[in-house]
Simulated scan of single mutants.
Amino acid sequence: MTTVVHEFDWPDRVVIGTVGRPGERTFYLQARAGKRTASIAMEKEQSAVLAEMIDRMLDELVTADDKLSIPAEAPAELLDDAPLDQPVEEEFRTGSMRLGWDPRTAQMVIEAFPVEEEIPGSDDEALDVAAETESEPSEMLVVRIPVGTARAFAERARRVVASGRPTCSDCGMPMDEGHECAPEADA
C-alpha cells in the first residue's frame, strides 16, 4: 500500500486550533505552505502533550548543545492568534505521533499517523494476515519547523487547550451547564 504523505518543510503556518464551542470542540493541527493546507483532527490531550513535549525537547537541546540558538520563550513576532484557515477539511484523525529533531536543518519534526482502523472480522488468522498487509499507514503528516516557530506553536497550543470550559475547583471536571459534584465535607 502506498502511504499518502502530507509533508510541510518550512511551512508558512503551523498551528493548533479548534472548530466548535467549548465542550464540543474538535482540535486540529493545521499546516499551510502557499495554497496547500492540511488539517488533521486531534484530541485535546494530544494537543497539550505535543506542546509539552516540544518545549521539553527544545529545553533539552539547549543544555545539550550550546551552539544552538533556541529561544527560551516564543518570539513575539512568531505568535499566531488567527483562526484556522477555512475551510477546515480533515485529512485524518490522529492516532499516534512522533516528535524528532533534524540536526542537519535545526528543525523540529512532527509526524502524525491516523488512528488505526479496526479490521472487520473476529478470526485471529484473518487479522494476522490483514495486519501484515497493512504494515504502513495509509496517510501521515510530516511537518518540519524551526525552533522559534516550534516555541510559538507550543505556546499557542497551550492557550487553545486552556481556552475551553473552566474546570471545577473541587473535582477538576469541566464546568458544564448542570455541573454537579459533591465536594468532600469538612470533618
Rank of each mutant, 00 (worst) to 15 (best):
Q30Y: 07
Q30K: 05
A31Q: 10
A31H: 07
A31T: 12
R32K: 08
R32A: 08
R32V: 07
A33E: 10
A33W: 09
A33R: 15
G34E: 00
G34N: 01
G34S: 03
K35D: 10
K35L: 14
K35F: 11
K35V: 13
R36Q: 10
R36D: 08
R36Y: 09
R36F: 13
R36W: 10
R36E: 08
T37F: 04
A38C: 05
S39F: 07
I40F: 14
I40H: 03
I40V: 08
A41G: 07
A41I: 04
M42A: 08
M42K: 03
M42Y: 12
M42N: 01
M42Q: 03
E43P: 00
E43Y: 15
E43Q: 14
E43W: 15
E45Y: 08
Q46C: 04
Q46G: 00
Q46R: 00
S47P: 03
S47M: 07
S47Q: 13
S47H: 13
S47A: 13
A48K: 14
A48I: 09
A48T: 12
V49C: 09
V49G: 08
L50A: 14
L50Y: 12
L50T: 11
A51N: 06
A51P: 02
A51C: 10
A51Y: 01
A51R: 01
E52F: 11
E52S: 12
E52Q: 11
I54R: 15
I54F: 07
D55S: 14
D55L: 13
D55Y: 11
R56H: 13
R56D: 07
R56T: 12
R56A: 07
M57F: 06
L58M: 00
L58G: 00
L58R: 00
D59L: 10
D59F: 06
E60R: 13
L61I: 09
L61K: 02
L61S: 06
V62C: 09
V62Y: 06
T63A: 15
T63P: 15
T63W: 15
T63V: 11
A64G: 02
A64T: 10
A64M: 04
A64H: 09
D65G: 05
D65V: 06
D65N: 10
D65E: 01
D66F: 10
D66Y: 09
D66N: 14
D66H: 12
K67E: 06
L68A: 06
L68S: 05
L68D: 03
L68T: 02
S69R: 15
S69T: 07
S69Q: 15
I70A: 02
I70Y: 00
P71A: 03
P71R: 05
P71M: 02
P71C: 03
P71F: 00
A72C: 06
E73W: 04
E73L: 11
A74K: 04
A74V: 05
P75W: 07
P75K: 05
P75F: 04
A76Y: 02
A76D: 01
A76V: 05
E77Q: 03
L78D: 03
L78T: 04
L78F: 12
L78C: 09
L79T: 02
L79I: 06
D80S: 05
D80K: 06
D80C: 08
D81S: 15
A82V: 12
A82K: 12
A82R: 12
P83R: 03
P83Y: 05
P83M: 01
P83A: 13
L84E: 02
L84V: 10
L84H: 02
L84F: 04
D85W: 13
D85T: 10
D85R: 12
Q86H: 09
